[in-house]
Design a protein around this nucleic acid. Structure first.
Lengths: 249, 249
DNA sequence: TATGAGGGGTGACGTGGCGTCAGGCTCAAG
DNA sequence: CTTGAGCCTGACGCCACGTCACCCCTCATA
């Protein structure tokens, strides 16, 4: 089965011009018929779908190209990440909706809002860092995707479970009012590093400390971790930080 | 309370450049201090918030300007519409997520999807129609935004005044119990059409009759017009309608 | 056999929403 | 009195296309 430009256009909702543009910049390049007409095949269509997923998330065409053309590109992995990012995007809209609701209320009551509350959810810079963290082309990322490519759904389950177990262990300490710089917490922090190293990428001290920061700065991580206990992300972050304050002494 | 450019930038997450751009195109125009520095006041901030809500929904800056500068603009009403549109947008993302999930499943099972199912939720044309329906009517709307782009604040004042004068004239007739099919009312209806044609878009009889409908159907218009006289919107609407019943005879 | 509509193609220029300088003024702090 | 941070105004650059001009091909209908 093959398609002409117009057919693909109606199929995707894009314009023929857009399709020719994507061809011109090497993003989606159909083969050609004898009369030089573009001929889209199944792989072209699938790639086009990928492109549109990423475009929905606001990636530039250049970025999309480098993601899709990455030698370490793994489709399933990418799709899962996309799903995550899209649900995040939904969350983002929810935040804006909250702000909007507050604004409506304030307006109905004739009250003026505090200006700092008027722009919750709009700030994109934090979100950009997240995406950088998710898709960024650091070596850690590449190593991670190389490894995660091979994981089966059962592997993922196991990984999730090990994470959960560790988080619960942290939470037990926290519930017993064990301070984050307690040796037991430090041991767990070490286990945490090994867990990452085992399943994702070599977790150097720098990266580990980076994670500690992300865990408290990034709502996404925070919420996820905090499902295992209140304020748990902060606690874990402190434990990790202490691990390196200790060793540096 | 006032703000400098940088402060607004950090407050909103926009860049100073963007703020200066919005000023340049007349979208959000702060006043100036003696040293020519931009000074953002509370109204500026509120307008900026409006702009960002609409931008989130993908409106162009020109469209946003013509929405916010609409003489019949009603903030509360607009906020409610925004809320609707944002929840719609969430639904839109859900559709894409469904498509994504199907794609993931197909990929995991090694099946190829039906190509027509691969782009569900992407097609923007339907969504555009919705938006068109909610915020603006077709070519007349576009012409209007083309023209209104060039208007200065003084122009707007003049336009508002001419509208007000006309509405008051209608109201005088109504107060004197002049029926809407009286020649004097018909004359005012003609003036109304010319006023629209002059400042916004070529007001054909069809469009004018459309306006007559909108004036009684759309709360927003009704409320605005009725500030010039009780039930005035209905009266004007009737006068317009009669203008064409007459000429068609 | 002409013809006209509807598809295809390649330049090339226009546009919107900024980013990114360059060059110069202002102002508080040291 | 310098210095650095922040402000200003042009002016150019860039991306993702829209739009237009001009030409080719094909197929149904006159």
């Amino acid at each position: 089965m093959t398609w002409t430009t117009k057919e693909v256009a109606t199929l995707t909702g894009l314009t023929p011009r857009t399709l020719r543009h994507y061809d011109a910049i090497g993003l989606v390049c159909p083969s050609r018929a004898e009369n030089d007409y573009r001929v889209y095949t199944q792989p072209n269509i699938e790639r086009l779908q990928d492109v549109m997923f990423y475009r929905e998330l606001g990636f530039s065409l250049h970025e999309i190209a480098s993601i899709l053309d990455d030698p370490d590109y793994n489709k399933l992995d990418a799709l899962l990440k996309l799903r995550l990012a899209l649900t995040e995007r939904k969350q983002h809209i929810n935040t804006i909706l909250q702000t909007l609701n507050q604004t409506i209320q304030a307006h109905q009551q004739g009250v003026t809002m505090e200006s700092k509350d008027m722009f919750n959810g709009f700030d994109a810079s934090l979100h950009e860092e997240e995406t950088q963290h998710t898709w960024g082309h650091t070596s850690a990322y590449k190593e991670s995707s190389r490894r995660t490519q091979k994981y089966t759904p059962e592997d993922w389950q196991k990984i999730q479970q090990e994470h959960a177990t560790l988080y619960d262990a942290f939470n037990t300490l926290k519930q017993n009012n064990t301070p984050p710089d307690d040796p037991r917490a430090t041991r767990l922090a070490l286990q945490h590093r090994e867990l990452i190293s085992n399943y994702f990428y070599t977790c150097t001290p720098e990266i580990h400390q980076g994670l500690a920061l992300i865990y408290v700065q990034d709502e996404r991580f925070q919420k996820n971790i905090n499902t295992h206990g209140e304020e748990l992300a902060t606690y874990i972050s402190q434990a990790i930080t202490h691990l390196y304050q200790q060793t540096s002494k």
